[in-house]
């Protein structure tokens, strides 16, 4: 089962790249555009934080590490689950979603695999560059164990992003135009660009429990930097798992609604 889907995903991916190669210029632009957009925001943070000794006790490089972890997690969502944004007007309204339902594979898999989004590669590069540069400046030692931790938390962060988007995207089965809903929840990730300690307790709790983007950046960063990590730094994979299961339940519920209304 897993093998079948893995090999199918590869196949989808290869097809996707064949399409992208038909539009080579677009491919290149998509890749660089995300880098450009990130650059504007990053330049702003760099300009400001480099002028103060620290941000709530976090140095510029430490802040950039948090930012980098978040960007890596976001890029996973961007690359592998971008189709969740367009499920409403791209699939449900024009009726293309019906095609997924008459194919002998999981419709969610089909939806996600249908479009690998190469723009996310740009985000991935930015995130990776931030983590590398900041960890050099911070003289971090990457032991194999640390590296494993990094990989696990980045994937967990990606799953958290995807799961939250899946929950909001499911609303497309009711209201079709799900993008505004997704956008609102998605945008709360901007809080997690900075150390959560700059926010009041209520917001910290919000980003830990309700919309747990904190596990995609801040808590892992405390561990990597050895800054008083605590239990929460070990939770990202579990949070990701719980959220993934929950979001899939929500998706199935939405699918059932679709079966009832077919709108």
């Amino acid at each position: 089962m897993l093998r079948r889907y893995t090999s199918l995903y590869w196949f989808f991916l290869i097809q996707r790249f064949k399409i992208l190669m038909e539009y080579r210029l677009n491919f290149f632009i998509g890749l660089t555009s995300t880098i450009f957009l990130q650059a504007a925001g990053l330049l702003g943070i760099w300009v400001i934080v480099s002028q103060v000794p620290d941000l709530n006790g976090w140095t510029l490089d430490q802040v950039l590490l948090i930012y980098g972890l978040l960007t890596l997690a976001k890029s996973i969502n961007h690359m592998f689950a971008d189709n969740l944004w367009v499920i409403g007007w791209g699939y449900v309204r024009p009726g293309g979603f019906d095609r997924f339902l008459v194919r002998p594979i999981n419709p969610l898999f089909h939806l996600l695999a249908d479009r690998f989004c190469h723009d996310g590669l740009g985000n991935f590069l930015v995130g990776a560059a931030l983590v590398i540069v900041s960890s050099i400046n911070l003289h971090l030692v990457w032991t194999p164990l640390n590296l494993l931790y990094l990989i696990v938390v980045v994937i967990s962060g990606g799953v958290i992003f995807i799961a939250l988007n899946l929950i909001t995207a499911t609303s497309a089965f009711w209201i079709i135009e799900s993008i505004p809903v997704t956008q609102i929840v998605f945008n709360t990730h901007e809080f997690a660009r900075f150390p959560l300690t700059i926010y009041p307790k209520a917001i910290q709790l919000f980003l830990t429990i309700l919309i747990p983007y904190g596990f995609a950046s801040y808590y892992p960063a405390t561990q990597i930097l050895g800054r008083d990590p605590g239990l929460l730094a070990w939770l990202p994979p579990f949070v990701a798992l719980v959220l993934a299961v929950f979001s899939y339940r929500v998706w199935l519920f939405g699918l059932k609604h679709y079966g009832g209304t077919g709108s």
């Binding site: 400001i48 941000l55 709530n56 901007e190 809080f191 660009r193 900075f194 700059i198 009041p200 917001i203």
Partner: peptide
Amino acid sequence: LAMVVLYFFWQAVYA
């Protein structure tokens, strides 16, 4: 949302 982030970010900067 953006305003909330801005507010606390700048508060931390000026702190």
